[in-house]
Design a protein around this nucleic acid. Structure first.
Length: 165
RNA sequence: GCUGCAUGCUGUUCUAUCGUUCUUCAUUUAAUGAGGGAAGGAAAGUCCGGACAAUACAGAGCACCGCAUCCCGAUAACAUCGGGACAUCCUGAAAGAAAUUUCGGGAGCGAGAUAGUGCCACAGAAAAUAACCGCCCCAACUUGUUGGGGUAAGGGUGAAAAUGUGAGGUAAGAGCUCACGGUUUCUCAAUGGAAGUUGAGAUUGGGGCAAACCUUGCGGAUUGAAAGCUCACGUAUAUCUGACCUAAAGCGCUGCUCGCGCGAUGAUUUUGCUUCGGCAGAAUCGGCAGAGGGGUUGAGCGUAACAGGUGCCUGGCAACAGGUAUCGCAGAUAAAUGAUAGAUGUCUUAAGGCUUCGGUUUUAAGAAACAGAAUCCGGCUUACAGGCAGGCAGCUUUU
RNA sequence: GCACCUGUAGCUUAACUGGAUAGAGCAUUUGACUACGGAUCAGAAGGUUAGGGGUUCGACUCCCUUCAGGUGCA
């Protein structure tokens, strides 16, 4: 089941290759060689576009079939499977509109979560690389008050450690 | 000087480390390096007006929706903006016996109540063809009652009672008459660029509500960037059921109506040729309702150069316009513009030093709002810590 | 982003074309009945009609505005 959407992506990529742009080039190249992923070479504190979870298909699949762990109001939804990316993990961050009406507050929490993930993602990368697996992940904040950076870091690290990979 | 109110402007700055996004160049083939750009006055609400895009469009009437004092101007346009005027409302002072008027300040989100319909609870005789009590006249007799009539001065009810006050007049009363006011409409004169204002004269007797229906005037084609264009993928006008129509069913012209047009020698789509007038070929063709099944939901463009910003000059009371110089100023899409640490400016509090008692300075602690672009502009509305500016009101001090 | 709808007691809802004290059911609470509880009977409390402003003599109702909640889109 996990291999299906990868095949579809490759299928589409080949057929549309006449209309490729720079962005498409990155995508097709990244998709071809997860097996060559070198932790030492690509690792670091960066968090580029290819490490972000953007495909609507995968996100739908993630919320339908994924498992979750939670800590202090932070929920991490994840799904082991193959991605169309070079990296072992693609991650996204979201805050529901229910408890935070203003876009400023939602953006602030997402930024804090992204920063915490960026600085602490190596643990997961090492695990997944050693077991040759890929994972889609989505962090959801369900609390009612805006947390500070310290609390966010603690909770995100706790979530990552709880993962059973 | 302090406090409060509304208005306008402003909306701390910098360094280091680690990062995000767009873009240019280089190395070169996937990433790395270097340079540059990266939220607001409201980016918000989506309340108006446009640009832009697609679709539609011979025509008339009706319906529907929106706007609404008047004048002059501004603007691409607006329900917007600037300047002025009036109705109306609030408030202070003065005059008068009173109605009311005059002057000052503030608001002013406002078409028509003699086109028609409707509504005005309770109370009250009566809520819009006013007679309950009262007042007056006449008649009758049982001599204080009944009947007929006149009367809107007085009573009380109410949000509102039929033009206010005074005098004449009368059987009693009444704009019935007069004076002074106010209301409606008109004429003349002065003044002003105009709306209007002021004065004189004539006329008038009609409660309120149109943010009730409505009438009048003006305006409005519909849908919104999830528009739309290109590419890729895919493609079904399948099939079944129901009632109906059988050359008029229907289709088109804005939703409806009228009217008109088309309706198989036809219509629509499409291919080839062409002397661009057409010619030839192919495919499809009654619609309605329901059931039922299938596919896509990726990429690029639109998309960042303009009713553009800033400075200066000119015109204008101003909104704004013209000229000139200069600048290029976000472009994401599960959605970039951040995190940490430190310094700095502002304010508050506490302690200390100096002082010409107005302040100034050092240290420590704390505070800093409303809020995040999503096609783009012009407005409106709402939110907003602190600071600045001029204005108004109150209190206090000095002269 | 665009278009639209709805707010009445704790909950579910009435209130006519503006007219007065905003009415009911469930829940809550007090008392009665019972040995106790339930059911039943009698009573009570609970409303900024989402907030603010306006029109009107008078507003849940009409108009404007803000807030909250919800719906739809190729």
């Amino acid at each position: 089941m996990e291999e299906k959407f990868l095949q579809e992506e490759e299928h589409g990529a080949e057929k549309s290759s006449r209309f490729l742009t720079k962005r498409d080039l990155n995508r097709s190249l990244a998709g071809k060689a997860f097996a060559d992923f070198d932790l030492a070479k690509s690792a670091g504190n960066k968090f580029g576009a290819l490490e972000k979870l953007k495909s609507k298909k995968i996100i739908d699949k993630l919320f339908n079939e994924g498992k979750s762990v939670s800590q202090n109001g932070f929920t991490l939804v994840y799904l082991i499977g193959e991605l169309n990316s070079f990296y072992p993990v693609q991650a996204g961050f979201t805050v529901p509109k229910k408890y935070f009406k203003h876009a400023v507050d939602r953006n602030r929490i997402k930024r804090l979560m992204r920063e915490a993930y960026r600085l602490n993602k190596l643990v997961v990368y090492q695990k997944l690389t050693s077991s040759k697996q890929q994972m889609a992940a989505m962090f959801v904040f369900k609390g009612k008050v805006i947390p500070d950076y310290k609390a966010v870091t603690e909770s995100v690290v706790a979530c990552l450690n709880k993962l059973k990979v």
